[in-house]
Design a protein around this nucleic acid. Structure first.
Length: 547
RNA sequence: GUUCCGGUAGCUCAGCAGGAUAGAGCAACAGCCUCCUAAGCUGUAGGUCAGGGGUUCGAAUCCCCUCCGGAACGCCA
């Protein structure tokens, strides 16, 4: 279906061609801040003032009659100083739009901007060395929202979690579990210096003890501890993420890159291409020639790899799997890492902009007005599970979904945890629940809520028009936020749609003795509910039937 | 010292490919349930858009400088 603003845009283009023999690349159609000014407006006349060397007000007035001729679109076209052209949409167009939305059903809002583009979104990718904390929660919500949004916009999306099961921190994990295990068996083994102190470590050690008794007390190797540690922590992460509404398509193991020889192969390739050199026994990659501050070590002088090395192999593997765009959702603490990764990918692929890094600013968590430091090693962090248990997944996801990715946010636990009824998520959910109970009531009163409506005669008031226009703008919101990678704009829209609905509900009696009017409004509300539910689903929030 | 974010109402944040009187939630104040769920609605109050220059018809939005806050600057991951 063609959206209203596209129709307006086309009519403006036609008028420009007719009046000035002009064709523009871009053209802005907006919704004015004040509804009484019009349903839509354009600043085209002002933009053209310079090129046409004319007063914008004159330009607007030249275009006005040409636009006004489109009576199938416009009820009225007005010009306002200094040169805005304001449009009032014809009722017939609003009604036609309403029917089209109903016809489209859950596909309403689907876009084709992402068609034929395969996207890999990597997010969370937390080390399997403890539970997920608040920072991970933001990353999980952000990545998942982006994935759902881009799917809606037509992209082929894979959600991927990179499991760092190959590095040194896994050794620390294994040694930590072993220490706890030995402690449980009465020995006085301390937790290693870089070890992990979280309660989940003790839990694993305990399970391990129950299974093997003291069998591993005198075994030197760490392999079994590694294996058990990684697999049980990873299962825990999956469970917590699932409870948060986040499920991945693929968990990619770093260790598998070594096993498949991909790290080595990548290194050889880089060497063969003359992109490396050796200095003080270490292998440097010439990232400095590709936009990085300086060259980076990929093989240390002791022969082991830095983190960058397998990461290059990993991103190359993603490209080989056929993705056109790679998105990494990373915490702001990794921002310094981005240029070298981009440089390396460009070296390997020859393509410059395949990697899109979405930076997430860190969350500051407050309790009793004081900042809580999140440290996984100490085991004192607020975990995602704690949050879900106390506030509920919906409230947390809505909270994160409201804010742009690169805003620094404060999460006040005292506020978030206790006063749940003040959480804005309920405002949106209530809008949906209100409609659902209303439909139920309508059926009790004998209305057939599934009855299609073909003729409309009672949708002309401002509240109703505003609601239809708001619903109709959904596809544009999807497209804009998917292209700009700004899922929070969708949440803004949800709030705004809920607000429009509440206003409508307060001002318009839906169920009445006038049967035609009632049925028309029921029809409208069903459409609104559909869009509300669809949009809430895109940010991982439930749409409850009643509250 | 360098780089990346941020600074907008009392608080948490939108708005920033330049456009009309800068918005929302919470908090405050005043109203609204004999009427489809008051987790709602209506209204009032609240702002030097950190500060200073510049660009232009027009700047919260773009450019430069300064200040404040967060983060990163490893042969850690």
């Amino acid at each position: 279906m063609i959206s209203i603003d596209t129709l307006i845009e086309q009519s403006i283009r036609k008028a420009l061609k007719e009046a000035f023999d002009l064709e523009l690349e871009t053209l802005e159609v907006e919704v004015p801040s004040d509804q009484s000014l019009g349903d839509f407006s354009t600043n085209t006349a002002m933009k053209l003032a310079r090129t046409l060397r004319k007063n914008p007000f004159e330009i607007a007035n030249t275009l006005k009659p040409l636009l006004k001729a489109h009576t199938e679109l416009f009820k009225e076209v007005e010009v306002a100083r200094p040169g805005f052209i304001n449009f009032f949409i014809a009722d017939s167009l609003l009604e036609a739009t309403l029917k089209e939305i109903d016809k489209a059903g859950h596909t309403f809002g689907d876009s084709s901007v992402g068609e034929n583009t395969h996207v890999n979104i990597e997010f969370v990718s937390a080390n399997p060395t403890g539970s997920l904390h608040v920072g991970h929660a933001r990353g999980a919500a952000a990545g998942d929202n982006l994935a759902r949004l881009m799917k809606k916009a037509g992209y082929h999306v894979t959600k991927e979690f990179y499991v760092n099961d190959g590095g040194n921190q896994i050794n620390n994990l294994a040694r930590s579990i072993k220490a706890r295990y030995e402690q449980l068996l009465g020995k006085d083994t301390p937790i290693p210096e870089d070890g992990y102190h979280g309660p989940e470590i003790t839990k694993i050690a305990n399970t391990f003890k129950n299974q093997y008794a003291d069998k591993f007390l005198h075994v030197d190797g760490l392999d079994t501890f590694k294996e058990v540690g990684v697999s049980s922590l990873l299962e825990g992460l999956k469970d917590d993420l699932h409870a948060f509404g986040v499920d991945f398509d693929l968990f990619f193991s770093e260790a598998s890159l070594y096993e498949d020889g991909k790290v080595e192969k990548t290194l050889e390739h880089l060497k063969d291409s003359g992109l490396t050199y050796i200095e003080e026994d270490a292998v440097f990659l010439k990232t400095g020639e590709y936009g990085d501050d300086k060259d980076r070590v990929i093989v240390k002088s002791d022969g082991s790899y830095t983190y960058l090395m397998p990461d290059i192999a990993y991103h190359l593997d993603k490209l080989e799997r056929g993705y056109d765009v790679l998105i990494d959702v990373l915490g702001a603490d990794h921002h310094g890492y981005v240029p070298r990764l981009k440089a390396a990918i460009e070296m390997m692929s020859g393509k410059k902009d395949v990697l899109d890094v979405e930076m997430l600013q860190l969350v500051k968590v407050l309790r009793d007005g004081e900042e809580l430091k999140m440290s996984k090693r100490s085991g004192k962090a607020i975990t995602l599970k704690d949050l879900i248990d106390e506030v509920g997944s919906d409230a947390i996801r809505y909270f994160f979904a409201r804010h742009s990715l690169n805003t620094h946010m404060d999460l006040d636990l005292d506020l978030a945890l206790k006063k749940t009824n003040e959480n804005p998520v309920y405002y949106a959910q209530y809008a949906y629940a209100r409609i659902m109970t209303l439909l139920k009531k309508a059926r009790e009163k004998g209305f057939d809520t599934d009855q299609p409506v073909f003729e409309f005669a009672h949708l002309g008031d401002d509240l109703t028009r505003g609601l239809i226009l708001k619903v109709a703008s959904y596809p544009k919101v999807i497209e804009d936020s998917a292209l700009a990678r700004t899922p929070h704009k969708l949440t803004n829209y949800i709030h705004s749609l809920a607000s429009t609905l509440h206003g409508f509900y307060g001002g318009v009696q839906v169920l009445s003795d006038a049967e035609d009017a009632s049925l028309e409004r029921i029809y409208l509300l069903k459409v609104v509910a559909g869009v509300l539910k669809d949009a809430l689903t895109l940010i991982g929030v439930e749409a409850p039937e009643s509250m």
